[in-house]
Design a protein around this nucleic acid. Sequence first.
DNA 1: ATGAAAGCGCTAACAC
DNA 2: GTGTTAGCGCTTTCAT
Lengths: 349, 349
Amino acid sequence: MGRTPKDSITIADVARAAEVSRATVSRVMNGRLNVAPDIVARVRAAADRLNYRPSDLARSLSLGTTNMVALLVPDLGNPLFQQILRGITSASAAAGYRVLVAESDEDPDAEASIAIEARRRCDALIMVSPRLDEPSLLELLPQVQPVMLVNRQGPPEVSSVLVDYGRAVRMVVDHLVALGHRRLVFLAGPAASASNTLRLRALDVAEREITGLEIVRLDCGRSIEDGYGAVDRVLAARGTAVVAFNDLVAFGLLARLNEVGVAVPDELSVTGMDDIGLARFAVPSLTTVRVPQRDLGELAWRRLHAAITGADGEGDVPDLALHVRASTGPKPGRGSEVGQTLGGGRGEG
Amino acid sequence: MGRTPKDSITIADVARAAEVSRATVSRVMNGRLNVAPDIVARVRAAADRLNYRPSDLARSLSLGTTNMVALLVPDLGNPLFQQILRGITSASAAAGYRVLVAESDEDPDAEASIAIEARRRCDALIMVSPRLDEPSLLELLPQVQPVMLVNRQGPPEVSSVLVDYGRAVRMVVDHLVALGHRRLVFLAGPAASASNTLRLRALDVAEREITGLEIVRLDCGRSIEDGYGAVDRVLAARGTAVVAFNDLVAFGLLARLNEVGVAVPDELSVTGMDDIGLARFAVPSLTTVRVPQRDLGELAWRRLHAAITGADGEGDVPDLALHVRASTGPKPGRGSEVGQTLGGGRGEG
DNA sequence: ATGAAAGCGCTAACAC
DNA sequence: GTGTTAGCGCTTTCAT
């Protein structure tokens, strides 16, 4: 409307106080040249005296740009998304952008409308691991451009940052196979998670390629509690090593194994995924694959920023690295050392 | 300006398509009554057909309200702040608000300007554990109202949500004293942290009140690494129990103690603070005080929202609760059971 | 019940 | 160099 008794002082107040036009004040505030030094001083003085702060809202409306990015994640409680948020926040802050966070609460149906709504207030949107089904996603994406996908593949014209969890899980499997393990238990994550699918596919391939390798797949989840609660089924599966969906699951597993007195890695090896900060400090310290989650956020931002500004998006998805620690060891049973070579997999049975 | 070749379709387009005035479209979009049903239908149809989305920016400018809250935290990597963010995000989303996150990176000098800048884009600001010194804080607060402080006390006219870490640490101390411990080691957090000061003060009081109680204060920090790295100094301090600044520090400590072969709690008891999700799953599971961090965020939001809308801010800071788990036990040495009573503290030496 | 018009606070042509 | 003016897209009096 027009009647809001705004307390805030506007550019007009400064213009009046400095006895210049609003345009000139604007020029001064934005460091535009072509303003006489004495006028600049006068305006600055007036602005300071009045404690003037330009309205970002009005600037944005006029400029057609908000300097904000929206970030939509399924669950802010997930360390992965927290790290990505950190990466995006600090990287975008460097470019003068702010981050608006939105959470879908793992509800696929809510995602689309939240995405649209959040995007409306921002110049761009970053969707992390959207749980939306493929058709809905394809329908949504054009409406929220420019948009960036993290850990989910979109159509070719939509850029994305993807971690190759397939390769990651394969690194773990190869490591365990090299230690002599032939019967592994995989603790699967949420079915709706694209990265879980990647892992499963890689396991299929591994099973096919490595002779004698058996992998028992167990539905589990992605939280500590899920891992903790899976122990009975894990033990019943009679594998010699377990590949957890992520570090959190591995953590829960380790805690419970410790309670029931199963020695890790002497009786059972355990691996995680992600290398969250705590992995190194698990008891025993956790063998896992380092996924540079924070860098992921930064990269997503860089690419998006490049897309917005028309520059070229430098940088590639950071490398994965297997970190072998104390939670994995040779397959229990005969002998102690194993030292097999990777790959060709001379089966045990 | 006026020349931006906006691709987005505006209220004017809809008005034209529906052959009504923009005012009418506005009324329809906002569910205002006083519009003939057939007109409503026509407008809705046009809007749908054109895929019209009102610009939040323009609405905000006109309405004078953004429906956004700014959240400023020192460090997004800190689980406490992450939980608070979660609480605020979900609680405010329920009221149709979005959260803008900003991070000061623990830099006190950056805080003021970030706060002002973030606040300008939002209707209100929540500052968590500001590291700013007192005078600067007092100077800043009036400029960013409405503002809410979390875990830091401001002047009376600025509302805040405070956890009584003093009481929390005292609960831990009493628990340890009851177990027979008389020489404790306190691993202190960042000096700039107000909550650390609260803990230290409470320890002074405890030392005065409980006869025979000695507390060795060691500078440490707030991260796992800090706890991990403090082990040598802790052992040198020759206490029988250690009170860690928070769960993270306790985690690092436990990990290292396990590596060097110090039995917890048989040789040394360890306590944390906060009861982060992982505390229960530490090895051994961690005795700690549950600080409902997420609720803190929700409460901060509720109070702030009440202040904005003029309602009254219901709700109180949620209760603290000591969770006794496996990381604490009787003081090592003579006998096994201790079973002393709290308080009056019959000293040992 | 609807439209015309002013205004939210700012920026950027365009004149002078 | 500086002022004038016309928007950015929306809401809301005020008149009809």
